[in-house]
């Protein structure tokens, strides 16, 4: 019975990590480390970006397997760090199973940064990246506005549980059209720098980094699937921006 509780705890810890954007090998490692506490004969964990499978077996019990499907993923690196820390303390015997489970639930309930901070940060990310890529002050202000619009748009679409690729496509369109509009209205603004800065919040940094790190650790399946995710996100953004620019150029005639 105790073993089953341990397995549930391990799977829940893995689920939270995987949902929050941890690398696949780290999730596997964490589950196996938690399960190793009870010195069972058989411990197997198999993790892909969309699901977790774990099996334990021992002479004293029936073989038990638990499967967990992961659907909605978001980026919560704070949770990854906390669960990682918790699993370490648990395996070192510094915390009991009951307390660890309570703490894990508390981590799961942790709120992200408030909505207005997210909106502001998206705007500032866009603005500062425009500056990084050599935009002037006017470009940065336009990017700030685009970033804020983008974050508000993302918030409403995420609430409706829309596919990530559609959000990125629409985000690309939004960035392209606002950038095109403002560069026409305000003199001395650069379309390139504004768009490059503004697409940064959409760029799939987590997917790319995790794809590489999973591949190194031998999780080839996860590496490939994350790379495909990153590739399609990039294509979605490029299509969104591209369509708008093409229409814009067609209407106004020629390159800006």
């Amino acid at each position: 019975m105790q073993h089953k509780t341990l397995l549930k705890f391990a799977i829940q810890a893995g689920e939270i990590m995987l949902k929050s954007g941890a690398e696949t090998y780290r999730v596997e490692d964490t589950i196996e480390r938690i399960l190793s506490v009870h010195h069972l004969d058989v411990i197997e964990a198999f993790v892909t970006p969309t699901g977790i499978f774990a099996t334990i077996d021992d002479e004293s019990m029936e073989m038990t397997t638990l499967v967990k499907r992961i659907r909605h993923r978001s980026i919560r690196l704070d949770k990854v760090a906390l669960v990682n820390d918790l699993s370490r303390r648990f395996t070192e015997g510094k915390i009991s199973l009951e307390n660890a489970m309570a703490e894990l639930n508390a981590i799961d309930q942790r709120l992200p940064y408030p909505y207005y901070i997210m909106v502001g940060s998206t705007g500032l990310v866009s603005a500062f990246f425009t500056a990084v890529f050599g935009g002037n002050v006017r470009d940065c202000i336009v990017s700030l506005a685009i970033g804020i619009f983008l974050a508000i748009m993302q918030y409403f679409f995420r609430k409706a549980k829309t596919s990530r690729f559609l959000i990125d496509l629409i985000g690309g369109c939004l960035i392209g059209s606002i950038a095109l509009l403002f560069t026409r209205l305000i003199p001395f603004t650069n379309l390139d720098q504004i768009i490059i800065g503004s697409i940064m919040p959409l760029v799939p940094g987590v997917a790319i980094t995790n794809a590489i790190r999973d591949t190194i650790e031998g999780d080839l399946l996860s590496g490939v699937s994350r790379a495909v995710e990153a590739f399609f996100v990039a294509i979605s953004i490029a299509t969104g921006v591209g369509i708008v620019l093409k229409i814009g150029f067609a209407l106004t005639g020629g390159i800006l």
């Binding site: 954007g21 780290r26 990682n84 890529f133 697409i199 790319i208 790190r213 953004i237 150029f249």
Partner: peptide, 28 residues
């Protein structure tokens, strides 16, 4: 803390967003 926390945020400046955009723009 897990290395991803620093790696993902650090490497983001180098992610070739500009390159992607310029490629698309040239294609357009």
């Amino acid at each position: 803390v897990p290395v991803t926390v620093f790696l993902i945020s650090g490497i983001i400046t180098l992610v070739p967003g500009a390159g992607m955009y310029r490629t698309m723009y040239a294609m357009l």
